[in-house]
Design a protein around this nucleic acid. Structure first.
Lengths: 241, 241
DNA sequence: TTCCGGAAAATGTGATCACAAAAGAAGATT
DNA sequence: AATCTTCTTTTGTGATCACATTTTCCGGAA
């Protein structure tokens, strides 16, 4: 494998991806997929951005085959879209679609939280509290991306406590679909609010109170990214073409 | 494009897929994806079945590249699994995982039904009733696969009435994950029950009664495939290796 | 028979290339 | 200036091949 390949040495039009080193033994395809996925999840792409296979292959210093596979996978989970004319784009979001995504997030995540409660040990809950501290730390430092990732990890840690859980991939699909608009929002919001319902969720977890946990998670989503109303989303989308 | 390629003319170990003609203009990749997806959805594959890229490429009379893309997409939605040793298999199901999937189906589909109600016209409801008639017809004739597909179409038709709906792909992901065990169940169930809550759901739709619709859908799932309890699933899985 | 080791076959991976379709650029026509 | 036409470039698609890893097979030793 690993033959030489010629760099096309052109100016890359492809957006710069947050780089991360390629773990030993990871396939080219998997690397491309993971890196793209991460980039979309944290809002590195704008809605409507068009992607080219060869451009990405050059950026990742590989060839079209594994990149195309990665892009295809990303379309399967709603992160990208292959249009009729065979162009590849980051899906555009309408206010209505945005509201559907938020509503779906609430349904999925409150469900996942309920199913996880029985599996959460006190020790695990302590580790989740630590994560919440990390979030507030990132916020005070002003590290938006860091806060975002830590926040996702906070939610993920709760839901995946259930070893037989099957909802996490679907939840992440929704996160991916919200990624692009999240990127826009982050740019236009100068200061980060510290309003979250994490403490409330944690208390409810400690009490093993299903309804309270579900309500705290729902409120957290509603008041977080879900807090953008119809008009705000329209404005954001207009600002970013 | 469309160069010649040599048929390896061997006995194909790959399970026979329900054939369907390739629509004009559809790419090889898309054809492979659609056909495999359909096959898995109706239970044509057993849990644990292993798949090979070249085998499928031969069966579909194409080459590894587009087939691999299709398989990769199917893994993204939980229909297949690439193992560590790079083998591709239909995921195995444990009773606990089965229960999680059913529970997730209920959460997702009752949510999708709620969000669809406002968009359903009386005319659309009439068409859904016709679909329900088709299901009962298929059942009396003994056409299991037909009944299954019509049943899925019944659900899909309701949820997709909402034009901004985003849950359908996730719901189909869950259907795909249930497909293999559904295939086993269909083999070991000699007679088809006609117990469904479709009439109840339709009446609730007509009344635009959100809670009643959600409850009817939930009951339909619980008493349908969801009706298999822990013991029954274990038995089914044991019967089919 | 059982277990081990090495050869042979099968299989996933990824780079490359030819092809077709789409997009973009440039010039002519209205 | 706007629109259409033609040529060039870009881009997605899919077949093919070389390579590395894994699996399978088979013969010999315990």
């Amino acid at each position: 494998m690993m033959q030489l390949h010629h760099d096309r040495s052109k100016t890359l039009k492809t957006p710069v991806l947050p780089a991360f080193p390629r773990p030993e033994g990871m396939t080219t395809h998997d690397y491309a997929f993971t890196r793209l996925r991460q980039a979309i999840m944290v809002g590195a792409f704008r809605p409507g951005t068009s992607i080219t296979i060869r451009g990405l292959a050059d950026a990742l210093e590989s060839s079209p085959t594994p990149v195309r596979e990665a892009l295809r996978q990303l379309t399967s989970i709603g992160a990208l879209q292959f249009l009729e004319n065979r162009r590849i784009v980051v899906p555009r979001i309408t206010p209505a679609r945005f509201e559907e995504l938020i509503s779906l997030r609430i349904a999925l995540e409150s469900h996942a939280a309920r199913r996880a409660i029985a599996h959460l040990s006190d020790r695990q809950i302590d580790r989740i509290v630590a994560l919440d501290d990390a979030i507030e730390m990132a916020i005070t430092v002003g590290d938006k991306a860091g806060a975002l990732i830590a926040n996702q990890e906070f939610h993920r840690r709760i839901y995946t406590a259930n070893p037989d859980q099957v909802a996490m991939p679907l939840i992440e699909s929704v996160w991916l679909q919200l990624g692009p608009i999240l990127g826009i929002a982050m740019e236009h919001v100068t200061e980060l609010y510290v309003v979250d319902r994490h403490r409330e969720a944690i208390d409810a977890l400690r009490r093993r109170d299903e309804d309270a946990v579900a309500e705290a998670i729902a409120a957290d989503i509603r008041e977080g990214i879900g807090g953008f109303d119809h008009a705000a989303i329209s404005k954001l989308l207009a600002l970013a073409g």
